[in-house]
């Protein structure tokens, strides 16, 4: 059994929050650059250029990419024979990491304590949304941090379709969701779609899909074709960056799927804004 100190995980989380807040991932900047050179609409081109310029300023001056510094999702994958010292304090430790990172880096604290009645700001952006996943091929630990803003979070949808529905039903739900909501998020967006599992699990799949590296396409050809077809239809709407017209409404459509009950076809959609904040690192103990 190999032991990982909980403080080591905390320091990694703090580092990842900082990286994600100030640095747009390379797959996103590459995709925006490509979209920018393909755009024929001048306003769209200009906005895509501003997004790239924004990422340069954020990295150089350490000003957050977006004023909405987000909810913090932390996914930790734990490999074989790994033991986290003081494991039962993992949530407390994650919250401490978030509170310290948000204070030290002048990030906005956006979480309110009671969701309905008091809505008092927790002033430290906690709690973190922590999930732990076993990973048998990993010699150590992998930490993934995702920061998701409220505007895009509000554009999240769950549809319990029926098994007789086809891919067309999903296409039509996603297109409606985009047409009605995308300007409330920050287009160009990344659309994450979860298919299968259960009503609660499928929204998790959609969130993971929204944060998936844009260079990774679905390994299954049928789903890959569906991803491409939905992307094309979204970009044919002409909504464009900031909703001001153009062919870049979405940068990607990512699908993640799982088996589901024979009576169900759960589908969830999650929007991620162009200011996609994710960072990942491994603590290896070979």
């Amino acid at each position: 059994m190999k032991i990982i100190k909980i403080t080591k995980i905390k320091n990694q989380i703090k580092k990842l929050i900082k990286t994600a807040s100030f640095n747009l991932p390379e797959d996103i900047t590459d995709s925006i650059r490509q979209a920018c050179s393909a755009e024929k609409n001048n306003t769209a081109k200009k906005i895509l250029e501003l997004i790239l310029k924004n990422s340069e300023i954020a990295a150089k001056k350490k000003i957050p990419l977006c004023q909405d510094c987000g909810n913090v999702y932390i996914d930790i994958k734990i490999g074989e024979n790994i033991c986290i010292e003081k494991f039962s304090f993992l949530q407390d430790m994650a919250d401490e990491a978030v509170a310290e990172a948000y204070k030290e880096n002048y990030l906005r604290k956006s979480i309110v304590s009671d969701p309905l009645f008091d809505r008092i700001n927790t002033k430290d952006n906690t709690p973190a949304y922590l999930s732990i996943v076993p990973a048998d091929t990993l010699d150590g630990l992998e930490i993934n941090v995702f920061l998701k803003g409220g505007g895009s979070e509000n554009c999240s949808f769950l549809y319990m379709l029926t098994p007789s529905d086809s891919a067309d039903a999903i296409i039509s739900k996603v297109l409606d969701a985009v047409r009605q909501n995308v300007t409330k998020s920050c287009p160009p967006v990344i659309i994450g779609i979860g298919i299968g599992a259960t009503s609660s699990k499928v929204t998790e799949l959609a969130r993971k899909a929204a944060f998936r590296n844009l260079k990774i396409r679905n390994a299954d050809d049928k789903y890959k074709i569906l991803e491409n077809s939905i992307l094309e239809k979204i970009n044919n709407t002409g909504i464009g960056p900031a909703g001001l017209g153009g062919m870049t409404t979405a940068l990607a459509v990512n699908i993640e799927y799982m088996p589901c009950h024979m009576a169900t076809l759960p589908v969830a959609v999650s929007f991620a804004c162009h200011s996609l904040r994710r960072a990942s690192s491994k603590i290896l103990l070979p």
Binding site: A58, I63, C66, G151, C186, P241, A242
Partner: peptide, 11 residues
């Protein structure tokens, strides 16, 4: 409207 998510630039 201002384009969203270009907040370091707008600063």
């Amino acid at each position: 409207i201002a384009p969203g998510g270009i907040s370091a630039f707008l600063a």
